[in-house]
Design a protein around this nucleic acid. Structure first.
Lengths: 123, 123
DNA sequence: AGCATATTCAACCAAATGGTTGACGATATG
DNA sequence: CATATCGTCAACCATTTGGTTGAATATGCT
């Protein structure tokens, strides 16, 4: 019963939201934008500044992040301010946590994962 | 939190992995497969059975999940067994937790791990 | 050997993604 | 008013994605 309920929850609940949230997080530019917004709210132009990419492209990325609920945008004057909305990530995080709960936090395994990333490890 | 330099290294170094992990999680079919594998290891054909989609399509999905490190595949006889590998997801989860203190997770343990194992704290 | 089962490969296709450029509406400022 | 700035829109393009089908490979069974 518990298993059935959990399976149902995993399969159906928030599936569309998870689609858009994970898809939004899958792009390194968008993740970088989120990290920038962690420091402070920013105008669209300022978000775009460090990237070697057109303003229009950044604007599209911001739209995707907004639709995923990961940020919000508020226009004040001619400036549109972007604000991080960390709650949207909660749904995805909770979903992912479901895959670790049956096991206590396996730091050793995570360490093994990191070993492959250390300079001189993999690649 | 941890030292900024190390945090930056961590984000940079894992960027490609996060690309593939989040992209893999962005598809509902693949998330459903992961949920199925939460119950038990499964053969490719059995994974494919509940889906209204060709076996080849499921095989591709499983390849994507494998490359993201979210599952592993072991061939025994003519049957290829698929096994959930939650560690990759944990890495993504750790990344997400930088954006909010919403999950009760292991950040302390992770921080201790970073302090002792990463360049600067390492030999 | 001969046949059935398990899985992948290869070629193809439609749709989505991530980028560009140029024009445009809206807002601030001299 | 005139002009500069902020941001989006529209059209376009190349690449990736998610699916199909049919053939191919590998293993197991009698």
């Amino acid at each position: 019963m518990v298993d059935d309920m959990r399976a149902m929850w995993f399969c159906q609940s928030m599936s569309e939201d998870l689609d858009t949230i994970f898809a939004a997080l899958a792009d390194p530019t968008r993740r970088a934008i989120l990290a920038m917004l962690l420091e402070d709210d920013m105008a669209v132009t300022d978000v775009a500044e460090p990237f070697e990419m057109s303003l229009a492209a950044i604007s599209k990325h911001l739209t995707i992040l907004t639709r995923a609920g990961l940020i919000s945008q508020e226009k004040r004057g001619r400036v549109k301010w972007c604000k991080l909305e960390p709650d949207a990530m909660r749904a995805a995080s909770v979903w992912m946590q479901g895959f670790g709960q049956f096991e206590p936090v396996n730091l050793d395994a995570f360490e093994r994962f990191l070993e492959t990333e250390l300079p001189g490890g993999k690649s």
